[in-house]
């Protein structure tokens, strides 16, 4: 057992117990795992595969099929840009580009090097009347503009520096 796995062991055991008690399935198990760790760690998948005698490929098959699952750790702060149709026609893409420019992220990159901020797109949040919508750490910004977002991101960066 490696160090990381030892640290996770207790939580993993709890997850398996819950899984068995609630007659859940692999999707719910992965959802609970992500809830616990913020992402789905590979070590956890192999451990489950061994415990449940289910091929690890089945877990990865599910984890890569559904958009909800992340196999890599994410940033401390999450910026989610809604890219639903209503947001798209009101310029969501320009917002995403502006945020990425501000964070110096390449087009295919979504998390900053220091893992401070992750920028992600979502298909539709269902608050189309406020389009374009961006969520920063759970707080919703309706009718978002590049100005508002740049300001918010700069203050996020500042706050983290202060805390360090």
């Amino acid at each position: 057992m490696n160090v990381k796995l030892i640290a996770m062991h207790e939580q993993l055991t709890d997850l398996i117990v819950k899984f068995r008690e609630s007659e859940g399935n692999l999707i719910t198990l992965l959802q609970d795992t992500q809830e616990a760790f913020g992402y789905v760690p590979q070590e956890a998948v192999y451990w489950f595969a061994n415990e449940l005698d289910v091929p690890a490929s089945r877990f990865f098959g599910i984890a890569t099929f559904y958009a909800q699952f992340h196999l890599k750790p994410r940033g401390k702060n999450i910026v989610t840009a809604c890219c639903g149709t209503a947001c798209h026609v009101r310029g969501a893409e320009r917002l995403v580009n502006a945020v990425k420019r501000e964070l110096k992220l390449e087009e295919d990159q979504d998390t900053t090097e220091d893992r401070l901020i992750t920028v992600e797109k979502l298909a539709c949040l269902g608050t189309c009347s406020l389009a374009p919508v961006v969520i920063i750490n759970g707080k919703m910004f309706g009718k978002a503009t590049t100005d508002i977002l740049t300001r918010e991101i700069r203050s996020l960066k500042k706050e983290t520096k202060k805390n360090e």
């Binding site: 859940g24 399935n25 999707i27 992965l30 959802q31 599910i62 099929f65 559904y66 909800q68």
Partner: peptide, 24 residues
């Protein structure tokens, strides 16, 4: 049952597969 973010699961048989815990 919570969906895990797959548009195709709006299709009946895919939705059923997802409730059963498989790829949708």
């Amino acid at each position: 049952k919570l969906g895990a973010g797959a548009f195709v699961c709006g299709e009946e048989t895919a939705l059923i597969a997802s409730i059963e815990g498989q790829r949708g």
